[in-house]
């Protein structure tokens, strides 16, 4: 028989192994992508797959020669940040009114908003494409920003709503009694109290926008094309070039990975510092 102490350390060990397993499984594709991006095309195809090889930077040089990385990256940045900022400007007031001035129909409205995410996007591709064509927004950053805002808004409102729900409404009422205007109440009391949650909402919106491919591919050509469109351009015409595809993917993922890594610490801190009560 194991003692209680032994059993506890065994559980800890097993949980640790499990956690590492999951983490490795999630990380492996990224690791392999990174590895492949430094191989020659021949090494990239080799069977069995090679873990050790002579690294080369030729893929990166080639990608740089063939396409203007920074043009695509800048589009990604503008569109992700633009849609996130507009999204937050809409989501915060919407979530505020739903969380603190709830009516009979609030829950239904929230569910309905979320249900639009269950529709396959391709179902509305033609109408949206035609609308964009008529409005001359095809291949514009503005058009893509609007689309990203719209597709992420339900999730942003839902998240902000959940975080706001945790804030006791008396604190906002106290601010109202203290003489704040609606704007001061939101800016000086509500936002500081929910900054951790809102930061994760912002981060999620950035990641979703950055990684969005369906609308990027269908609504942009060259002018407004973000990094996801750049990746796709390497997978098509002359067949697959694994090493170059990996290089361009690495370049596309790097900014958001680094950004996520930096803000992760901020997020955890925000979440624990913002704790109410």
């Amino acid at each position: 028989m194991l003692t209680l102490k032994q059993r506890r350390s065994l559980t800890t060990a097993l949980m640790g192994i499990l956690a590492w397993g999951v983490a490795l499984a999630i990380f492996f594709p990224i690791f392999w992508m990174l590895l492949t991006s430094f191989k020659t095309e021949i090494d990239a195809f080799a069977t069995p797959p090679q873990l050790f090889f002579t690294p080369t930077l030729e893929n990166y040089t080639l990608v740089n020669e063939r396409s203007d990385y920074f043009h695509f990256a800048w589009n990604s940045v503008v569109v992700s940040f633009g849609s996130t900022i507009i999204g937050m400007l809409l989501a915060v007031p919407a979530a505020y009114s739903m969380a603190f001035f709830e009516t009979k129909r609030t829950k239904a409205t929230l569910l309905w908003m979320l249900s639009t995410k269950m529709l396959p996007p391709v179902g509305v591709l033609v109408p949206i494409y035609l609308l964009f064509k008529d409005l001359q927004m095809l291949d514009t950053r503005l058009g893509l920003t609007i689309i990203f805002t719209l597709i992420n808004l339900p999730i942003m409102i839902w998240m902000a709503y959940t975080y706001f729900k945790e804030i006791p409404k008396e604190v906002l009422e106290a601010a109202r009694m203290d003489g704040s205007t609606l704007f001061q109440e939101i800016w000086r009391v509500l936002l500081p109290m929910s900054k951790g949650g809102l930061a994760s909402t912002v981060l999620l919106s950035l990641i979703l926008s950055w990684n969005e491919a369906f609308w990027s591919l269908n609504l942009t050509a060259s002018q407004a094309a973000p990094l996801t469109a750049l990746i796709a351009s390497y997978s098509s015409p002359e067949g697959l070039f694994w090493a170059k595809l990996s290089a361009v993917s690495t370049l596309a993922c790097a900014p958001i990975l680094i950004f996520g890594w930096i803000s992760q610490k901020q997020l955890v801190r925000g979440l624990s510092f913002g704790a109410v009560k």
């Binding site: 006791p168 008396e170 604190v171 106290a174 601010a175 009694m177 009391v189 109290m193 704790a275 009560k277």
Partner: peptide, 20 residues
């Protein structure tokens, strides 16, 4: 009138202090 304009102050059961 809006609460802010009434010149009243309120103390809540849950205190409702600004935690930040």
């Amino acid at each position: 009138l809006a609460p802010a304009k009434r010149d009243l102050a309120m103390v809540f059961q849950s205190y409702a202090l600004y935690p930040h």
